[in-house]
């Protein structure tokens, strides 16, 4: 549905996006993840045809965004980071206006506007001035204008930014409901959002793609070595040595000194927990706690951004 190849965008000397390439297939929800200023917004603007790339091509539904902008734009619904709203218009006339310029046939406009209002829960505010709406409702109006023409591709730039938790949940549910019929690209710097709504993640950093994986693959990145957190009631001096002697253990680090907390790193293929428990009993350390440390997506994300291999 979306094919991006070798797209670069330079502003003077600085490359906002540097040779990005990826593709998204029909019905997928792709999470576009990266720190602020990584090039997420620029990539989305290139995809929507708002900003022409310095080099490279972007195709939407088979149409090159630069060569056939009208055909490509007809198939895209776009919600920019700041919802583009005419604050001096009422909600319904605004949506009617957008439907017209998005190319919805005249006889369908009323039905489509009604449907978008219903889907985005705008019915209570349909007759109000956009400028007087709360941030949450403005965001919904922004979303409504993006889905009016029932586009194949929906591009949402940080759709939940600045909303309160219950509004965020509503918007996420709304986005999830688009899956299947629409292809969705969603940018965010909130990881939880990706895990909750997307089935694929594209991590972008400093204008380049740092990772392009499904959620499962991303989570599995933490699996090469295992780490175990250990807390002992009476840690003696020989603890490190004794544990390191267990087969498969790579390192033992004492954390916080007197607290008796250790982090044990072992080979990914071996589970040393039983042996450690055994050792604790025979040496009388007083095992208080032992739990595996799984890397959270948050950690993996930060590792990838900092260019380190997730450990």
């Amino acid at each position: 549905m979306i094919e991006v190849a070798g797209v670069t965008k330079r502003y003077g000397e600085r490359a906002a996006v540097d040779g990005i390439g990826f593709s998204v297939s029909q019905g997928e929800i792709l999470g576009f993840l990266g720190p602020n200023g990584a090039g997420k917004t620029t990539t989305m603007r290139i995809l929507t045809g708002y900003v022409p790339p310095t080099s490279g091509t972007a195709r939407v539904a088979g149409f090159d965004v630069q060569e056939h902008p009208i055909e490509a734009k007809r198939r895209i619904g776009y919600l920019p980071e700041h919802p583009p709203l005419y604050t001096d218009m009422l909600v319904r006339p605004f949506l009617r206006f957008v439907a017209t310029i998005r190319g919805v046939p005249g006889k369908d406009i009323n039905a489509r506007v009604d449907r978008a209002i219903e889907r985005c829960g705008l019915a209570p505010v349909a007759g109000r001035l956009i400028g007087n709406l709360s941030k949450g409702f403005q965001q919904r109006v922004g979303l409504a204008q993006a889905i009016l023409h029932e586009p194949d591709v929906l591009i949402l730039d940080e759709p939940t930014v600045g909303l309160d938790p219950s509004q965020i949940r509503d918007i996420r549910q709304l986005i999830k409901s688009f899956a299947g019929a629409h292809t969705v690209i969603l940018s965010t710097h909130i990881l939880a959002e990706v895990t909750m709504t997307c089935n694929r993640v594209l991590i972008i950093n400093e204008g380049r793609i740092a990772a392009d994986e499904t959620l499962e693959q991303l989570a599995a990145r933490g699996g090469k070595t295992r780490r175990i957190a250990l807390r002992l009631a009476r840690p003696g001096d020989g603890v490190e040595g004794a544990i390191r002697a267990i087969p498969g253990v790579l390192s033992v680090i004492r954390e916080g000194g007197q607290d008796g907390a250790f982090v044990v790193e072992t080979e990914g293929t071996r589970d040393a927990r039983e042996a450690i428990a055994q050792a604790a009993v025979t040496h009388g350390w007083g095992l208080l706690e032992m739990r595996p440390i799984t890397l959270s997506l948050e950690d993996i994300f930060i590792c990838i951004i900092q260019g380190e291999e997730a450990a």
Partner: peptide, 14 residues
Amino acid sequence: RTGTAELLFTCPIT
């Protein structure tokens, strides 16, 4: 200034 240019220029119009 308000960013509505982004709406107009991403619509299928010239």
